[in-house]
Amino acid sequence: MIQLSGISHRIGGAPILNDITAELPRGKLTALIGPNGAGKSTLLRLIGRLEPLQQGSIHIDEMDLTRTPSVDLARRLAVLGQQTQIASRLRLSDLVAFGRWPHHQGRATARDRKITAEALETFGLGDLSHRFLDEVSGGQAQRAYLAMTFAQDTDWLLLDEPLNNLDMSHARGLMSRLSGLVGSAGKSVVVVVHEVNYAAAWADHIVALKDGRIAATGTPDEVLNAGTLSALYDTEIEVARHQGRPLVLHH
């Protein structure tokens, strides 16, 4: 369980998060949803210690985030931010292999190599593994970063808008894989998603943020209804049902 208590955060004086207290359950696929600027990414980045915590506390299972050495965290929690920076010129196989770094610190074992190869295969990068990161498409690079995060093989997986740049089939494949990790391997996953229907179709637990506060939490059935979503996005939204799960109609 990730326990968030009293988290407030400002960037350049502007309040981004206001006194957030919540629990993210273990062994579930949790989706963070909400309008642009709601603070979803900031919250995820705080949990992944990509931003320094200004106020409040975060506990990941028994670990206090600010007191646990970064390298110990890296064996328990993998975090992938949005890749907005200029790519380095690494081969995809080298990039994915770096996902094992927290476990071997430079001395890769046969097991590390096996996990790396599996991660490459899982994301359909087998044939591209010798290509350089700056020579593949945005979607392929995104899959390589995801494969690196998978190779890290941690209890917790935090992904900030992982569906960016992915086409329909790869997006669906990723959500299905995340759901599989939760179901079969007992992992816990937290994703920021923009398209609410991916949350509707795959998430076990939803945290909706608006203006830096928690607007709603609960199962998809509890959160994804016309009333809550219309208020969340300030837009008239209908919700239908499809194969036993909510289907959000917003076009």
Binding site: L50, S70, A74, R75, G81, S88, L95, F98, W101, Y145
Partner: peptide, 20 residues
């Protein structure tokens, strides 16, 4: 060398992999 290569991927990736 590995540490420099990981830092070359950006501070976020390096932090995520537990590097100071």
């Amino acid at each position: 060398a590995d540490r420099f290569a990981i830092l070359g991927l950006g501070e976020e990736v390096a932090t995520g992999l537990g590097l100071g």
